[in-house]
Amino acid sequence: MALATAATPAETSIVIAIGSNRPHGRHGRPAGVVRAAVKALGEAGFPAAAVSPILGTRAVGPGGRDYANAVMTSSTVLTPPEIVVALKAVERGFGRRGGRRWGARVLDLDLIAWGAGVWPGRLLWRQSRGVAAPHRSMHLRDFVLAPMLTVVPDWRHPVIGLTVRQMHARLRNG
């Protein structure tokens, strides 16, 4: 099933994961940061076609604080590297600075899916160190799959071959 967006033929449907585990001076608690990020992403050229409910999740790694997580769908003509540059600019607009990989953050945005496309290509997807679409670890992260179930449950991972529903069931059943 295609991602549920109103994409034109020249655009590709995308899924963006949104997370926060630090309050923001203007947007408040992490759930407020996630809501504000959806609006900021629209202003940055990624209007939301669908937005999942915001879920509270435990931190992975030494990040400490629990997260507010959601996903949204949109569409774009940009390539994954261009999308990631735009996402990083939105993060910086919320005060995110470089730091520890697993540290607390006011806003974390990740490109999760790029339609049925694979970036940088099916043969290089697992080995490349740079930008990858679909996100290399999405199938291992409940905080990504659970919100995706609410907006694109039938999206099929172009490398693994499973739907979001199937990946989530496998993750939950261990």
Rank of each mutant, 00 (worst) to 15 (best):
A68H: 06
E82C: 00
G98A: 12
A36H: 02
I83G: 06
Q166S: 12
F143Q: 06
G64P: 10
Q166H: 14
G117V: 05
G56F: 01
T5F: 01
P53L: 01
P134V: 01
L124G: 02
R92W: 01
P134Y: 15
P147E: 11
V90C: 12
Q127W: 14
G19C: 03
L162G: 01
R58E: 10
G161V: 14
A59M: 04
A2V: 10
N173K: 07
S74L: 00
N21W: 06
M167K: 06
A86V: 02
H135R: 07
A37I: 03
A37V: 02
M72L: 14
A132L: 04
V77S: 15
R96N: 10
S137M: 12
V152Y: 03
V85I: 14
V51R: 08
T5M: 07
A44K: 10
A36G: 00
A10D: 14
W114R: 09
G161I: 15
F143L: 09
T73I: 04
I160E: 12
A4Y: 11
W155H: 15
R92P: 03
L149G: 00
R165D: 08
G56P: 03
L162T: 03
D108Q: 04
R141I: 15
G42T: 03
R35H: 04
L55C: 02
W125N: 07
P81Q: 06
A133F: 06
W155C: 10
A113K: 07
S13V: 00
L124Q: 15
R97H: 07
A49N: 03
R97K: 13
K39W: 04
V151H: 05
T73W: 06
R172H: 15
L3W: 09
E43F: 00
R35N: 08
S20C: 06
W102Y: 14
A7D: 13
R35K: 14
L107Q: 07
N173S: 15
G121A: 06
P62M: 01
E11M: 11
V33E: 05
A36C: 13
G32I: 06
V164K: 10
F143C: 03
W155S: 14
S13G: 11
I16H: 14
M1F: 02
I16S: 10
D142I: 01
V152L: 03
T57K: 01
P62A: 14
W125Y: 05
R129V: 11
M1G: 13
S20A: 14
R156G: 15
S74F: 10
V60A: 05
R122T: 12
T5D: 13
I54G: 00
V38M: 08
G63P: 02
L145Q: 03
P23V: 05
T73Q: 08
E91Q: 13
P30G: 02
E91T: 06
V151K: 12
K88T: 04
H27W: 11
A49W: 02
G161F: 15
Q166A: 14
R165M: 12
L87T: 11
G174L: 09
A133N: 10
V118G: 02
G45L: 11
T12V: 12
G32F: 09
A50H: 09
Y67R: 05
V77T: 14
D110V: 01
G42L: 02
G121W: 09
H168G: 01
R136L: 15
V60F: 10
H24Q: 10
A49G: 02
S74P: 08
L3D: 13
G64N: 05
L87S: 09
T73Y: 04
A89T: 11
R26D: 11
H24F: 07
